[in-house]
Nucleic acid binder design. Structure first.
Lengths: 332, 332
DNA sequence: TTGTAAGCGTTATCAA
DNA sequence: TTGATAACGCTTACAA
């Protein structure tokens, strides 16, 4: 690989001048600029971005931590972020945390070590203290789907509690009073918040739910299957199943069909997230929208604005869930 | 951030010695090693991986190019690769190419520029020549889902033609003779190969297909919707719809339901890929398995073996598609 | 507008 | 087993 040194030699100018034309910042006379550009072309010169990072202490790349590299939720998030950043000429370095404390820390340290100019974190397992400590470091970051007290302005979040409330409220308005609930993992804040919203909607109407009709799932399709099985085997009546997310709703619907139960005739189902294929399930899934792609874009915009001083429009950190009505819930 | 220099000072040893204990390769006496480790702990020292890369010309990270960051296909691929690499202590840097020649080239150059030790590429838009040229460079790579003449040993592929053949053969055996086909984008080799397999199965039985019942889709759900609409409006009889991939099959099934058509009673549908939620569609989708996660792992293993000399078991580059029978096809 | 030279934080080659 | 010291490829004062 040709180095800047060879280019300077061939062009008959100094290193500094080559660097100037590469970075287009300082003024270089048209004549010398052309000599340099020709030399670069002739040698097929590409700047070594590692060396650039080391010397300039910036890398034009943003580190992104997600829990998993698969699944509709993170897929939408990664896409939203990458598109926004790429449009601004920045690169995204993705690492996964697998919802595990140690792995999340490792990944964050990797990204910091790679001299990312900023970080976008979907960190679930790491403690508030860790993030607070991180915020004292030199790498700025924004957090998605979590509010850390003390650094709220760097947290992009959706009101999960309100979303949970909306879902159950909607079913109550449709006349439902007997509920089953398949939640996400209890250690996850968003799962707990969604359930809290559900409880609030219930309480508002003086309704309660049998403990056997609350089952903890895993936010995956298998959790929905399992959840429904548990509810069914409790042998207690319910007319509506509220799922912590769409993937579990999808699993539950499939399981229901296997048990010769029909959704929504035998019971209604509502999900959460509005993942890309919610509209392609049968029945089409009524759900709460989690605008994760937009939130990802916003995270990117925040960084563009704060770290690179590139303005890209309105900035917000709070997003509101909203009901998407489709076919999986009926009036009672 | 503490540097190696400060550590050496605090520990009262030379830079070189600190470097040795960091890299655990050369022998260092236990006594000095301990002094260094203590100093490192005290200063919270973390090696700057950028500087390491520059000096050592390797980065312990592997670049991964995918077409998109979302979708079940790439999700599975990324997961498979990252898991395998992480287990070996390597990091994955992901970039997306959006099936666009220029973007793919940019991304590859970015990854090379970041001094990735090796690359895993799902490159669709870039030419064979470009890849051949790249193979003369210093960064080794393996290609997924494509065979480039001249560097076959670095190409991991599935026999798409055979998969296409299997799908249609299966339907023929079930008694179908009137087919419709929604293909992937024609400029994509895998889409063409799958269709070629379909034609071969047809030809084998002296069957043909009306040109109006071949429509070019986009490998996404919207393409499946559109494809079915086109076939329907052709007003020609068909009993089986072969889709270029599962996502389009999902779109077609949904569109069919909207038109009050029942799958598989009105016509059978078969997909391709066996994406994660094929089992959660209604009807459960019969499809051809594309073991993309395994292929991703294999790509990682190949690199681990060739670039790092880490052996992780059997290596193969050719994978075979196989039929996954579910509920979306019936006997005629 | 251009050039000189001192870093950036490591690794790696020699000697000692 | 250790220590000097020259790379690695680039950016960026500071001078000219």
């Amino acid at each position: 690989m040709a180095t800047i040194y060879e280019v300077s030699e061939l062009a008959g100018v100094s290193l500094a001048t080559v660097s100037r034309v590469v970075n287009k910042n300082a003024r270089v006379s048209d004549k010398t600029k052309e000599k340099v550009l020709n030399a670069m072309k002739e040698l097929g010169y590409k700047p070594n971005s590692i060396a650039q990072s080391l010397a300039s202490n910036r890398s034009n790349s943003i580190g992104l931590l997600v829990s998993e590299l698969h699944g509709p939720f993170f897929g939408a998030m990664m896409s939203g972020i990458e598109a926004e950043l790429r449009a601004a000429g920045k690169h995204t370095i993705i690492a996964s945390g697998h919802s595990d404390e140690k792995t999340e820390q490792d990944s964050i340290e990797f990204l910091v070590g790679r001299k990312c100019d900023a970080l976008i974190l979907h960190a679930e397992a790491v403690s508030d203290e860790f993030l607070l400590e991180l915020s004292k470091g030199t790498t700025p970051f924004v957090i998605i789907n979590r509010i850390v007290p003390g650094i709220e302005e760097h947290c992009i979040s959706l009101d999960n509690e309100h979303g949970g409330y909306l879902a159950t409220k909607y079913l109550i308005e449709k006349g439902h009073t007997q509920f089953a609930y398949v939640s996400g993992p209890n250690w996850k804040k968003d799962a707990r918040d969604r359930y809290a919203g559900h409880l609030r909607a219930l309480a508002e109407q003086g309704l309660t739910q049998h403990p056997k009709l609350l089952v903890e799932g895993n936010f995956q399709q298998s959790g929905g299957r399992y959840g429904l099985e548990q509810c069914l085997s409790a042998n207690l009546p319910f007319t509506a199943l509220v799922c912590g997310n769409d993937e579990m709703a999808s699993g539950a619907i499939t399981r229901a069909r296997e048990a010769d139960l029909s959704v929504p005739d035998d019971f209604s189902i509502i999900g959460f997230d509005n993942i890309i294929y919610a509209d392609y399930l049968f029945p089409k899934l009524t759900t709460i929208e989690y605008p994760v792609q937009k939130m990802g874009q916003m995270a990117a915009k925040l960084i563009l604005a704060n770290t690179y001083r590139i303005e890209t429009g309105e900035l917000t950190t709070e997003f509101t869930p909203r009901l998407i009505e489709r076919d999986s819930c009926v009036n009672l």
